[in-house]
Design a protein around this nucleic acid. Sequence first.
RNA 1: GGAGAAGUGGCAGAGUGGUUGAAUGCGGCGGUCUUGAAAACCGUUACCCCGCUUGCGGGGUCGAAGGUUCGAAUCCUUCCUUCUCCGCCA
Length: 432
Amino acid sequence: MLDLKFIRENTEKVKAGLQARRACLPAGRAPVDLSRLLKLDTDRRALIGKLDELKAEKNAANQAIGRMVKDKLDPKLKIASMKQTASQIDALQPAINKVEEDIDRILMTIPNIPHASVPVGGLEANQEISRWGKPPTFDFKPKTHIELAEHLDIIDFQRGAKLSGSNFILYKDLGARLVRALVNFMLDLHTKEHGYREMLPPVLVNTAAMTGTGQLPKMKEDMYYLPDDDLYLIPTAEVPVTNIHRDETLHEEDLPLYYTAYTVCFRREAGSYGKDTRGLMRVHQFDKVELVKFVKPENSYHELESLLTDARRVFEILEIPYRVILLSSGDLSFAAAKCYDIEVYASGLDQWLEASSCSNFENFQARRANIAYKGKDGKRKGFVHTLNGSGVALPRTMIAILENYQTKNGDVIVPPALRPYMGGVEMIKKKF
RNA sequence: GGAGAAGUGGCAGAGUGGUUGAAUGCGGCGGUCUUGAAAACCGUUACCCCGCUUGCGGGGUCGAAGGUUCGAAUCCUUCCUUCUCCGCCA
């Protein structure tokens, strides 16, 4: 969430940022009503001034009564006048509560404003920053991962649907083993070579956690919710891992903190039907290794670059061609100030697929989740900056491996880096 | 799931209706002493909001939310968490 004082003092800047995101229309009915917010802010401060005055009066009288009781004097008169002050306070309080609730509700729905380096515009303004590797060439028509997985009998789409519905996946045999191998490979890479600490958090979280990272209140429809327990299934490990430090003040000398976590992720993907939902492209439950950082504000953009490097290394070691996209203002997610997507190339689909998203949230999440830091002298220095990135999401990585490493007869070569995790298996072949 | 106990500052721990943001100890920071360090001694040591503004004044915060009262850390209700015992269970 943005700082109300910042909005008050930098209204034009905020307006421009929101317009760049298209969260705020140039004229007429804007989804985010800044002028209403500013009016409420003025009202609030006027009301609080009045209320504090009354409370000061009350406190003075209260102390006087205390003294009189101690000195065995009769405080009757004083009590009567204080009663009056108290009732005035009671009369004023609801108005202030109402104004503060309104302010809060609006603030919670205002997205982060894009960083200056983010290109302004919609999808067309996304920028390709770099490319790595070459798409493989075949002397045959490469199959899609769906054809390959069914041929090799390592993914059972029909029975996955039988168990839970469409776009739920049943991995089998070496398919299941490949998922496990990828998870272990990534966790080892990030913990041993990139300096992340491994976390294994709950995948059910409460409302406060979902609000802290910004999924609530706006994205409620996209999440699985258990009403009996008031818990949500996480759409990404970003939620529990960032919330590890909710309502905490971290020590400056402990920063930066690097955490990595494997979790299963759940997304309802409500309203996203069409050809993109075939196979592993868009599934309701998937596996992901996530990277999360808590850093000092002055380092956060440097940290974003190194986070991106850590995620890219996964594909480089697996030898999967990728390109890096700098997202435009219109394509940014709610809480992000800047975001890079990593897209892998998949030969069978002949498409670039988003397999990682690396974002700097600046203090947007830290403010919501109340994650501050203090210096060595114990003085509070403000909110930390939080970042996260997929390191990486499994299904589309799986698609790229199956489609890029396929052979003419429909077998799939295991990428060399994964073989130690696959019990030495070099080739996934049709069993029967 | 049942019964009981408890949640106070970085930590430990007092405080059961009235000048309590909160004794005391430890820790932290600054200083005196010392060649340096330790010890000792002195001082200092939470956060948020509002207003004038390098400081001050006012307000709020004792697990959370409500309630009683002129007045709540202290009394009442609900919830959350932790601990102990019992039951159930991968």
